[in-house]
Amino acid sequence: MANVRIVTDSTADIPQELRERYNIEMVPLKVHFGNEMYQDAVTISPDQFYEKLAQASKLPTTSQPSPVEFLEVYKRLHAQSPDCAIISIHLSAAMSGTYQSALLASSMLEEEEVDVTVIDSKSASFGIGVYVLEAAKLAQAGYDKDAILARIAQLQQEQKLYFLVDTLEYLQKGGRIAKASAMLGTLLNIKPILSIDKDGEVYAVEKVRGQKRLLQRVLEMYKEHFGNQPVDVGVGYSTEKSTADTVVAELKSQFDVRSIQYTRIGAVIGTHVGHGTVAVFVRPAAPDPEPLNS
């Protein structure tokens, strides 16, 4: 049976219960409130983060893991199982240096012949999480590295994602949009539908006036892409689960939804999108992988 271990970072926003169930290693990014530093999903939970964010006078900052942090994980996994292959899947390189840190760590192990493949997800939040979970399920079922990498590449082509933000404030402070655009959008109740392009960068797909029309338009775009085929859905939210529930109800009414996974948007991604954000990740439905014979 193949022996593959899956590593990711905290921006994949995978619930702890799923990380433990599928034996996923997670390296945290960090969020900084002034002189206070927290490890995303380790020493600060989403609830704690959004409470601190609401009280903060200044937007927090974020930082990537060092190559040494990845190196320690790769060495530990190799020591546990010297014949294992490691697949390490990370936040878009266009958004963070996390991928580069992991890549540098893997290069330090070449002489020791540790098999590490580092992947730029070109995505964020549960957009990464979907790839990681699928990879981990295949690994548990006994699939080899090449089969898992092929499935990740397929998912990268198939998955569509849209982010709906409640306020433009965090995008503006993070340098994603100009201050004048943020002020005008707030005054006119104009909200962007955001996605991530093939290069892994956030962009505005459309700008819509009003929350109701915003959701309606997202559903229309998903319908244009997936038609009537069965789909699997991931829904991430920062603070308002009721909004996520509304999105899920609408998806169920218009699509053949085979599975739904809720997740919270954690501290690092939350720093850049803020409260009230909902992210919807849709892909063609697929059954869990059949275990291979050992």
Rank of each mutant, 00 (worst) to 15 (best):
244 A>R: 02
249 A>S: 14
273 V>D: 02
273 V>F: 08
254 Q>T: 13
273 V>Y: 00
272 H>Q: 13
258 R>I: 12
226 F>M: 07
227 G>K: 13
257 V>T: 06
241 K>S: 01
261 Q>C: 13
227 G>D: 00
242 S>L: 07
259 S>E: 10
228 N>E: 13
225 H>Y: 12
244 A>Q: 06
231 V>D: 04
255 F>I: 08
278 V>Q: 04
231 V>K: 02
243 T>S: 14
227 G>P: 05
234 G>R: 08
261 Q>K: 14
227 G>E: 03
227 G>I: 10
265 I>K: 00
258 R>N: 11
228 N>C: 05
229 Q>E: 15
240 E>Q: 15
266 G>N: 09
266 G>Y: 04
233 V>R: 06
250 E>G: 00
261 Q>G: 08
264 R>Q: 14
242 S>D: 15
260 I>S: 06
242 S>I: 10
275 H>R: 15
274 G>R: 00
238 S>Y: 03
227 G>M: 05
235 V>L: 11
224 E>P: 07
223 K>P: 07
260 I>V: 12
247 V>H: 01
274 G>W: 00
237 Y>L: 06
245 D>Y: 11
271 T>E: 10
246 T>S: 15
273 V>S: 06
236 G>M: 11
224 E>D: 15
275 H>K: 15
261 Q>W: 11
253 S>M: 03
277 T>P: 08
273 V>H: 02
244 A>K: 00
272 H>D: 01
257 V>N: 07
241 K>E: 13
271 T>D: 02
248 V>D: 04
263 T>W: 05
228 N>W: 08
256 D>H: 03
279 A>G: 12
227 G>L: 02
232 D>V: 08
265 I>M: 04
268 V>W: 10
225 H>D: 12
266 G>Q: 07
244 A>L: 00
245 D>H: 12
253 S>H: 10
266 G>K: 07
256 D>M: 05
232 D>C: 14
265 I>R: 03
247 V>D: 00
274 G>L: 01
232 D>W: 09
257 V>C: 09
250 E>Y: 05
275 H>T: 14
276 G>W: 03
252 K>L: 14
267 A>Y: 08
234 G>H: 11
251 L>W: 06
280 V>Y: 01
